[in-house]
Design a protein around this nucleic acid. Structure first.
Lengths: 356, 356
DNA sequence: CTGAAAGCGCTTACAG
DNA sequence: CTGAAAGCGCTTACAG
């Protein structure tokens, strides 16, 4: 590509114009040495400006064997959960003088693996793998092989979210957050629950569901498996999940609306969808049914009612991952546990039976 | 960086292991030639896999003088407007086998300029400048100089949004959309309007405001300058803008609430903020005041009431920009005009005086 | 303080 | 079909 175009000015052009050697030009332009006579320095700077010189980063990367590029692989930048993480990641990366290449895997393991290879070939210094791990043996092993190869050549992989692979990681407290949420809802007076789940193999799904069940169990409450609708962490999934609960419902009850008083959607995107379905059917939230999500994405403040959720500091997690990746490597695994926090808003209230 | 680490396998290693020359190894691995004897081909492939060989993209870029990388500079990926554009951009880029590096300028001209340089040095093949232009002479000239330098070496710049710089562009119809919105609102019965504006120098702000005024003017209605609150295209700006309108209001009226029946927030993010302020003050929307935004970001469906807005196909714009950038260069300027469309939802209704 | 030269890891005419 | 060699545009010991 770009075959028959005038090439952009190169270091040699600058050096010639300034009447110095390329070595000297390189020294002043990449600042690696301050020991250049002021007059020459200025000549070089002037020549570079005049020629609109921009160094060829590839040549630099090759000569230095290293880049100032970070790679990030995540589900989808336009998903608010990830876009918040990316925000923090970008901020921290820029502060450290790093550029970041963002790749959307759409939760496709093959695509993720392919991106790891692509980013490795870019000789990125660090790779942030954002998003849930997968309870899949073969996938984990293949990913681990790639990641280890990357790390063995000095690359710095960092995971955000629980994976079945040893490595530096930033781990949100999905279990603890969901447990705390369950406790809060029980304290509020709820006894019968339903849930809208996430993709079955994601560790995030499992952790949040396990945590929630554990919180209920503390009060002797169990979550009827029939009251767990399948979901996929999207708004549409939340709509469908809620419809599933309302229409099919736990066997014998006809509909959860006549039974459960509170629904836990495993993430906010689905909670937004669930809220939409409830509203379309004129089911009052929280009057007739309470609804809670997880993540605390910005949109939770714009719904009416505002959404009860579990806050995890997404942007901070992104920034933290970058700083982990940029710290000098160490022999021991670095894992940062991120506290989550229940945020009670308008979508949850004591069940009608109590408030009557 | 990565100094005392075992280097990753290089082509020479693969070639040795396979018992062929690096030329041959290169040919089979980069597929540039199918004319390699099957047995050797297989040996090379096997060796590459065994060594976990990943080509060094920098060496390739240098040897080929070209990359498969696209750069994009935009305000902020976590802003839903841009995150939608990025989604489309990513999709189209990946389909074309391109990686994309996303840079957040935060609307800082200096930062934007710096990124253009950085991306040029990465020898990206195309650069997508996303976001509004700026009515600023000095900025436009400096940016134009950089862009022209990029283009003159075969780079493909594409603008999304109106800039004061000649170049291929994807242009949403801000003027027409705002005009159509004004018409629709007048048809609905509104006669007195207020607005929450955007950053003053952005062409987007100007276009939307001009279009809106033009639409009102068709019906002999003028927008009182005092009824235009300053804003900044953020949710917080929308909250403040609405508060400004409610508290200060046009001189002589005390508050727009007692005068205007409809508020136009120049983008959806601000409309969300405005809605929040109205709700906090128990002002019914659309009962007492109608509210409209612009962009049709996904969140407009999750508010209650849902938000009237002007839809511009953000993801498609991103994809279109990529395809413009990837088309073979041409001598004439390519400009794609993107139609916008008024979407009436629950936040607008005939003014109370009419419906009474 | 400065320059000539080797080397970073590939690709690609050019011969054979 | 295959290999030796030049070249992509830098950086950086190594001499001076």
């Amino acid at each position: 590509m770009r075959k028959n175009f005038p090439m952009s000015a190169k270091l040699r052009d600058v050096a010639e114009k300034a009447g110095v050697s390329v070595a000297t030009a390189s020294r002043v332009l990449s600042g690696s040495a301050e020991g250049v006579r002021p007059e020459r320095r200025q000549a070089v700077v002037a020549a570079a400006r005049e020629l609109q010189y921009v160094p060829n980063a590839h040549a630099q990367a090759l000569a230095r064997s290293g880049t100032t590029h970070i790679g990030a692989i995540l589900h989808d930048v336009s998903d608010p959960y990830f876009s918040e993480i990316v925000r923090g990641l970008q901020r921290a990366a820029v502060d450290a003088g790093q550029l970041v290449t963002v790749c959307n895997s759409y939760r496709d393991p093959e695509r993720e693996l392919a991106y790891v290879g692509l980013l490795r070939s870019q000789r990125i210094g660090a790779l942030i793998l954002t998003g849930s791990g997968l309870d899949d043996r073969s996938y984990s092993e293949r990913l681990a092989a790639q990641i280890n190869a990357f790390a063995s050549t000095g690359g710095r992989p960092v995971f955000i979210g629980r994976h079945h692979i040893a490595g530096d990681a930033v781990l949100p407290d999905n279990v603890g957050g969901a447990r705390a949420l369950a406790r809060a809802l029980v304290t509020m007076g709820h006894r019968k629950f339903a849930a809208i789940s996430g993709p079955p193999l994601l560790t995030t799904t499992r952790d949040r569901l396990d945590g929630f069940k554990a919180g209920l169990a503390e009060h002797g409450i169990t979550l009827d498996p029939a009251a767990i609708a399948p979901g996929d962490f999207t708004r549409e999934g939340g709509m469908a999940g809620m419809a599933h609960l309302l229409d099919a419902g736990p066997a014998g009850y006809g509909s959860i609306a006549s039974d459960a008083t509170c629904v836990f959607a495993l993430n906010d995107a689905m909670a937004l969808g669930a809220l939409r379905t409830l509203r379309d059917r004129d089911i009052d939230v929280p009057g007739r049914i309470s609804l809670a999500g997880f993540d605390d994405i910005p949109a939770t403040l714009d719904t009416n009612p505002t959404l009860t959720t579990v806050r995890i500091p997404l942007a901070e997690m992104g920034a933290l991952a970058v700083s982990l990746a940029l710290e000098p490597p160490s022999d021991e695994l670095r894992v940062r546990h991120i506290r989550s926090e229940v945020v009670l808003r308008e979508s949850t209230a004591p069940p009608a039976a109590l408030s009557r």
